[in-house]
Design a protein around this nucleic acid. Structure first.
Lengths: 218, 218
DNA sequence: ACCTGAACACCGTTCAAGT
DNA sequence: ACCTGAACACCGTTCAAGT
């Protein structure tokens, strides 16, 4: 009948979950470091190795938490499949851009956590609903993941320390030689918005459209 | 009338280009480090700061070299626009996967070098040829970049230290609960090939198709 | 003008020792 | 069982000093 905290005594002052939660609040351009997280927890760096085998484990856990933060529940419901996919994608993009350095994580750690499995299953469901056969649905689901993460991390890299507005302005002011790069010069204003949600929605819609279009004869 | 090397004497034993060239041969999962490159050049780490302002400059230079290695010339010629884009994309993917750690670079350093400008201009040309208006061509060009880099770095992350064949086999052997994840379980064999060129070509074609399809009314 | 020694403030990780 | 001190082998970068 002991209460929860006393059940086995306060031997463990930490847990892997707690460590990951603290780390989630420490994105600042880099992935939170083992030493940094330990310092925040007022504990020596090697203490964390009681709960995590290595840094890669922390990274995998962070990847899964970020996927969950984007709320996989928007992938189900009675709205159309396009809308559901787009909403989750936009949400994930937002989550990743809110925390500087989060996007890059996905290119260092594999997505093999429980939330990744749920997101995968639901993406498949949306594409089956769109009329795709299972093989195409699987390919389409991965294509969407690729596009969302690619976009988020490229944007994160371009943003660096500045704001979106500053980046757009800087891009607009770029000096392009119109003789060597006529098309680039003519489309400078559009290129200036490459890192906006609007561009993201445009390319994601194009991808979805292409995924559900029967392949043309090559 | 002095010869080239003697013109100002052998004061400089290095050049930024030389440093970048050496670094290009040192991808091993991480971006080559300043200290590592210096060691390879038989020079003290801080010597490199005579030629490069900081590590970020090395990274930007490497990004441009990698884009060039994929050979932007395949983007021009008399072959169809789809073929030209796909060939460059596949080539860039290959270049990035050949050097472990190369793909991740693009998500840390902006693409602002001379080769990036050429690739951009030629992608725009291909999409204009496809009949897109300038604004759509610009968006489509960026969408392609996003997709290629997203795919390459996700694949690099999944591959880790193993080979493609080993990864496919491991994915095929994965145990999925068919009650909780019916679609995932049913499409396991396709998911096993997510990191292959075939999947890459499939999703890239879908993206291109969607880019040249007139937008549907939302 | 170029290169270096020495130092600073960081990393991830291991291992034997303490409680 | 958990936490730590100390150490190892790394980072990028700065700065005063040497040639």
């Amino acid at each position: 009948m002991e209460d929860e905290t006393a059940r086995r005594g306060p031997k463990r002052s930490l847990s892997a979950d707690q460590i990951v939660t603290v780390a989630m609040g420490m994105f600042d351009g880099e992935t939170p470091s083992i030493r940094g997280v330990a310092a925040r927890l007022n504990v020596r760096p090697n203490t964390l190795y009681t709960y995590l085998p290595d840094r890669a484990a922390l990274e995998r856990a962070l990847v899964d938490r970020l996927l969950a933060e984007a709320d996989p529940d928007v992938l189900v419901g009675r709205r159309g499949w396009r809308r559901r996919i787009e909403d989750y994608a936009v949400s994930l993009r937002e989550v990743l851009l809110e925390r500087r350095g989060a996007a890059a994580l996905f290119h260092a750690a594999p997505m093999d956590g429980p939330t990744a499995a749920i997101v995968g299953e639901r993406l498949l469901g949306a594409f089956v609903e769109a009329g795709l056969d299972p093989v195409s649905a699987s390919r389409a689901a991965y294509a969407v993941i690729v596009h969302v993460l690619g976009s988020a991390s490229l944007t994160a890299a371009d943003l660096g320390d500045t704001t979106e507005a500053a980046l757009i302005e800087a891009r607009r002011q770029a000096v392009i030689d119109p003789d060597a790069f006529p098309l680039t010069a003519a489309t400078l204003d559009t290129a200036a918005t490459w890192n906006t949600v609007d561009q993201f929605r445009w390319s994601l819609r194009a991808l979805l459209e292409g995924c559900v279009t029967p392949p043309r004869p090559s």
